[in-house]
């Protein structure tokens, strides 16, 4: 029996299977975030059922420094997106050594992002929202501010972690020569995921920290 190759057929959309698969996966992932974000929007905008539990102003809770730190974090994630497109461009050009370095920068960018977010979580849990660990501590504002914050940034942080691992796999594969200049598609698919994580962060940052 002749071995049939699994790949685009005679009639196709003209893109590799992997790219189409990643885009359809991103549809699904975007809708997961849409569920969280739309739920957040409803909780944010509805009138509080109990008096005095209005939504706090994020600028006051996080502090100007906190917002600026997160803005820096956004900037780092955007930078790591740029290094990712450079990595892809270098793979397309056939310069695997440079691509490897760009990918390394991308991974470091992702790790810095996770580090800053971990620092921020620690600060918020210990200093700003002490009621999380101490039920006796009284609260005079909307508890869902913390709840939606953790759900959204945590779910996004999980995606960043997966993306870092994904990029690390690509990086090691290039280092060991398993991905060559012919495998641009593979890096492009990894890049799609990474840019998607960045894109979602832009939305989460705006809706959670700024509005």
């Amino acid at each position: 029996m002749a071995e049939m190759v699994i790949g685009p057929g005679e009639e196709s959309f003209g893109v590799p299977n992997g790219k189409l698969g990643m885009w359809t996966f991103l549809v699904m992932d975007a809708m997961t975030f849409a569920g969280f974000l739309a739920g957040y929007a409803r909780l944010r905008w509805k009138d509080p059922l109990i008096e005095g539990t209005a939504w706090p102003n994020p600028y006051e809770t996080f502090g100007v420094f906190g917002i600026q730190l997160t803005a820096l974090n956004t900037f780092i994630l955007v930078c790591s997106s740029v290094t990712m497109v450079h990595a892809l461009a270098e793979v397309m050009r056939g310069n695997m050594k440079r691509a490897e370095n760009w990918l390394l920068f991308t991974i470091i960018g992702g790790l810095i992002f996770l580090g800053i977010q971990g620092f921020e979580w620690t600060h918020l849990i210990l200093d700003v929202w002490p009621y999380l660990f101490d039920p006796t501590h009284s609260v005079d504002y909307n508890l869902n501010f913390a709840a939606t914050f953790f759900a959204l940034t945590g779910f996004h942080g999980g995606h960043v972690s997966v993306g870092v691992i994904y990029n690390l796999v690509c990086y090691l594969a290039i280092r060991r020569g398993k991905l060559t200049a012919d495998d641009g598609d593979f890096i492009e698919v990894a890049g799609l995921y990474w840019h998607f994580v960045d894109l979602i962060w832009i939305l989460v940052f705006t809706f959670v920290y700024l509005i």
């Binding site: 959309f13 003209g14 893109v15 790219k19 189409l20 885009w23 359809t24 991103l26 549809v27 975007a30 809708m31 849409a34 569920g35 974000l37 739309a38 739920g39 929007a41 409803r42 905008w45 509805k46 009138d47």
Partner: peptide
Amino acid sequence: KPAVIPIACAPFLFSVFLTIGLFP
């Protein structure tokens, strides 16, 4: 490729449905 663009834009449409419908 033109066929990929509607797929990529589809979640935007559906999340708009969701957000508008969820608005209190």
